[in-house]
């Protein structure tokens, strides 16, 4: 008798006990757990560490002292020219994005609408260079652009032209960025363009729109999410790029990431490097958030 009542009591209690547990470990949360852990360790923790270091005593290696704004004061002091590095970085990144957009649009259009069964092969060829280390590819370009290198030597022997080497100048840095980040602009653009239904474009023409009007009124706005993603991706990557300016630009221009690297290595001033990093993150983050406000991510991921 007692066992029976116990059993009854247990079964009647069980659902009440289960309910909150089920809510705590919803399948969605469980599935997201590994990513959340990774983000916490690999993204949030360094961010906190860097932010903390930016308020540390200059040239110190501990974050547990009294917080100070000394590092930021150094950066913003009129005697410091580090703002130039910021400007260079942003200008290079902006130029790279604009050039990439102009360069990638025709290719992306072809990949999305014209090349047909060749599109896969072309995509593969465009992805192929990514298998080789970026630095090795950039050093390849050094050999191409250097005095008496491939370009210079060819021009000299064929046409007798003596050009000043353009290696180690800002334009080559932009070239390097365009070259390295091309896939990151191209593929989101292809995605964007293939999101534009063919019949909608046809309908615009059928309703009397010229080729240019169709592009402006229908194709461009509908493909815009892809273009914006590509632009954001390449902009963020280019702002954070350091290899292009070091390898192709020599030391002609110091970009902000280079400054940060110097602060952390040769200068052994971690707090200054951290403060520069925080400022860069803030500037780029603000730009990205501004753009994302005008972007419906759901639409890009195919949900309406």
């Amino acid at each position: 008798m007692s066992t029976l009542s116990e059993a009854v009591a247990e079964t009647s209690v069980r659902p009440a006990r289960r309910m909150p547990r089920r809510r705590l470990f919803s399948p969605g949360l469980l599935a997201a757990l590994p990513v959340l852990a990774l983000l916490a360790i690999g993204f949030l923790a360094p961010l906190i560490a860097v932010t903390a270091f930016s308020f540390a005593e200059p040239r110190s290696f501990t974050v547990f002292g009294a917080p100070t704004l000394e590092n930021y004061r150094t950066i913003f002091s009129p005697a410091n020219t580090v703002y130039l590095s910021f400007v260079w970085s942003l200008v290079f990144a902006a130029l790279a994005v604009v050039l990439l957009a102009l360069l990638c649009y025709p290719v992306a259009y072809g990949l999305a609408h014209i090349f047909g069964r060749w599109a896969n092969l072309i995509t593969l060829l465009l992805v192929f260079p990514l298998f080789i280390s970026e630095n090795i590819r950039l050093f390849g370009w050094v050999l191409f652009f250097i005095k008496n290198g491939v370009l210079d030597g060819t021009l000299k022997s064929l046409f007798g032209l003596e050009l000043q080497s353009i290696l180690f100048t800002p334009p080559v840095i932009v070239f390097g960025m365009v070259y390295v980040y091309l896939p990151f602009m191209l593929f989101p653009m292809v995605l964007g363009l293939s999101m534009v239904p063919r019949e909608v474009v046809e309908a615009a023409g059928d309703l009397g729109a010229s080729r240019l009007q169709t592009f402006r009124e229908v194709e461009l706005p509908l493909a815009m999410p892809g273009f914006i993603i590509g632009g954001l991706l390449t902009f963020v990557l280019a702002v954070g790029a350091v290899a292009e300016s070091k390898v192709l630009g020599g030391q002609s221009v110091i970009v902000i990431t280079h400054d940060i690297e110097i602060a952390f290595t040769y200068a052994q001033n971690w707090p200054l490097g951290a403060a520069l990093s925080v400022l860069l993150t803030a500037v780029v983050g603000t730009l990205v958030l501004l753009v994302l406000r005008y972007l419906d991510l759901d639409r890009i991921l195919g949900r309406r």
């Binding site: 239904p197 019949e199 909608v200 309908a203 615009a204 509908l222």
Partner: peptide, 8 residues
Amino acid sequence: FQSLALFP
């Protein structure tokens, strides 16, 4: 059009 092809 079959899909109507409205401008979304």
